[in-house]
Design a protein around this nucleic acid. Sequence first.
DNA 1: CGGAAATGTCAGCGTTCGATTACATGATTG
DNA 2: CAATCATGTAATCGAACGCTGACATTTCCG
Lengths: 98, 98
Amino acid sequence: MLIRTPADLGAVIRDRRRQLKLDQAAFAKRIGVSRQWVIEFERGHPRAELGLVLRALGALNIRVDVGVDVELTTRRRAHGAVDINAIVDKAKRLGHDQ
Amino acid sequence: MLIRTPADLGAVIRDRRRQLKLDQAAFAKRIGVSRQWVIEFERGHPRAELGLVLRALGALNIRVDVGVDVELTTRRRAHGAVDINAIVDKAKRLGHDQ
DNA sequence: CGGAAATGTCAGCGTTCGATTACATGATTG
DNA sequence: CAATCATGTAATCGAACGCTGACATTTCCG
């Protein structure tokens, strides 16, 4: 999923956390933050600390990829799958904006 | 590129900023932070605010993608784009597990 | 229904962010 | 060399983070 805002990330994490059947307390403990933090972050807190965010993502096995727009930064996927995503992404971009 | 730590992100941004021939001051101004912030962030500051980080990435036209390992979670796009990704992802998922 | 579990809210508190300002070092170039 | 620009360092300071702990609310089953 394409991330644009902190709220996007919060939603992703919440979904994933539930998918893994973790409650906020267990999740918080696992990444070493308070339950409060989880609540605020899932709500899209824009000032959450980067390090904690990355820990949270890692704990849920969520991959973070960054790459420049069109050229360069070819990405490979975790499992030797098709790179159809790359193709699709490129197509979408050309068809839309930026 | 796969992001694991704040330092990874700092490096990406620094590279990209230079690629675009922006100095720290101009870059900082563009995203509405102090030059100090840029310095610390490029150095890998782990407690940088998520919102500012995303703004910085956006200002440099760096995409941020997140996704679960093999299975994936998402649907829900920011702007009405094709959901081919979802389809592809689902297909991949069916082929693998869960 | 009733109670437990999960989630959300509130209020204090120490710590630290990020802005600001000023100066120091580095690199480039005339 | 000297001037200029880019980058790094330092110190102050208000604002906000994230933690703790207690309570409220919602959700979920027996």
